[in-house]
Amino acid sequence: MTRVVATGTFDILHPGHLYYLEESRNLGDELYVIVARDVNVKHKPRPILPEEQRLRMVRALRPVDHALLGDLDDMFRPIEEIRPDIITLGFNQHFNEEDLRQKLRDRGLDIDVVRIPGYPGPLASSSKIVEHILKTRGPHRLVGRAGEGE
């Protein structure tokens, strides 16, 4: 059985997330997803949704067999417990594949690292979705329309 691990923040779920998880699941028989803890997200703005809500949403997705929150102190601890054959990275995750492979080997883990290409759709990132909402539905667009559509 081939075990795959995908990781990410998964804030404001969108088709790009689903694509990443489907492609990750296609590489093996069992998909574990590690959802980043709120306090560990430092490379981009703090998530909009709290970690428990993001975890619940990821757990509900069809390609996901198991989902858990990441470790607060050691990102490799869940990997050591799961012992996957493959770790997938999203197209925009800030990891160098070879550096990650070396860090895994240093911990006695022989795991393949696979980069999943980006989803081809126009709104394939949470930040682009937020930008789009602000541009098309921001406060300046709602003047005189209070309560409309609610």
Rank of each mutant, 00 (worst) to 15 (best):
V39D: 11
D71C: 10
D106S: 02
Y32R: 06
P78H: 10
I111N: 01
F95R: 04
H43E: 09
R77K: 15
D110P: 01
R37T: 12
G28R: 12
I111Y: 02
R54K: 10
D106A: 02
V58H: 07
D71Q: 04
D73Y: 11
N92G: 00
V35A: 14
E51K: 09
L123M: 06
V35I: 13
R46S: 14
R3D: 04
V64D: 11
P47Q: 08
D85Q: 05
V113C: 08
L49H: 13
G147Y: 01
P78N: 08
G118W: 11
I34A: 12
R46N: 09
P45F: 07
T7F: 03
G8K: 11
T136Y: 11
R77V: 12
D29C: 08
A124K: 06
V35P: 14
L31P: 08
R46E: 15
I111T: 03
L123H: 07
K44L: 11
H132I: 01
L49R: 14
G8L: 12
R62V: 06
R46Q: 14
E30N: 13
G16F: 15
T88K: 00
D106P: 02
R145I: 00
F10G: 11
H43S: 15
G108A: 10
H94N: 10
H14I: 13
D11Y: 08
R137Q: 09
H14G: 09
R54P: 08
Y32Q: 05
L142D: 03
I87D: 01
N92E: 04
E80S: 11
L72N: 12
L142M: 06
P50N: 07
R137K: 13
F91K: 03
I79A: 02
L104W: 07
A36N: 14
F10K: 13
K128E: 03
L100D: 04
P45Y: 04
L21A: 14
L142S: 01
G90K: 06
S126Y: 00
M57V: 15
L109Y: 04
M57D: 05
D11F: 11
